[in-house]
Nucleic acid binder design. Sequence first.
DNA 1: ATGGGCACCTGGCTGC
DNA 2: TGCAGCCAGGTGCCCA
Length: 269
Amino acid sequence: MPELPEVEITRRVLEPHITGRRIVALKVREPRLRWRVKDDLPAKLAGQRITGTARRAKYLLIRLEAGTLLVHLGMSGSLRILPAGTRRRAHDHYDLLLDSGNTLRFNDPRRFGSLHYTSDDPSRHPLLARLAPEPFDPKFDASYMWRITRRRRTPIKQVLMNSRLVVGVGNIYASEILFRALIRPRRQAQSLSREEVKRLAKEVRAVLEQALEAGGTTLRDFVAPDGELGYFSQSLYVYGRKECRACGTPVRHLTQQGRSSYYCPACQR
DNA sequence: ATGGGCACCTGGCTGC
DNA sequence: TGCAGCCAGGTGCCCA
């Protein structure tokens, strides 16, 4: 479900409901997520106050007095704030009970999501340590993009999807970013010109930022924790479309690494 | 070091 | 109507 904008929206909506609250209990109903939720996690969290939230790539960080929770939504995960006692639905895997009387509830049909806890600096956690710079970090610019595309023969779409090189971009936004940078998804990374690399760096930021402002992309089931539907899907040029939204040319579909890519053969080179 | 393929899951839709 | 087959917004890991 979520790429960077959807995770960031989730964070922003949850933030005022959870920061400053104390965790009464963690109730895990289904520990078999992408990685098994540790049995001793409830004991570690009980009684801790939530001091804030952050995001790194597509991981949501919930800062506690003595550590940090690392939450990943996977493909189909979502978090919601609900009044205690709200009836559970299928695929509600864990609840964080708060002293406000509310519950932070995680739902994830496919169970590709995950829940980790570290009492160390979270940036040193194995899942975060090797991630690329944030797209909104000043370090992420044309010269960074130039560096990572040199001597790589891999298709540029796979560079955008590789979290050691670029974070936050998933399958939908990868196609959209390439469309707006006027670059075809199969182009070898090293074949990009200075001009193309410059456009690419700019569009990575622009697309993520605009999707964030639009409340994310709702295709089938992304709903923010407050129930709002994102409307960025109206702004998609090629992803999942029959015709290019800019010029009307039939959109081409292909499979790369088992994932769908879309591009406009007229607009993109 | 890089790149490719697989694995982990469930649900919804399509087409026979 | 039933059901097989395919597809879906992610990403770590193993292997060549």
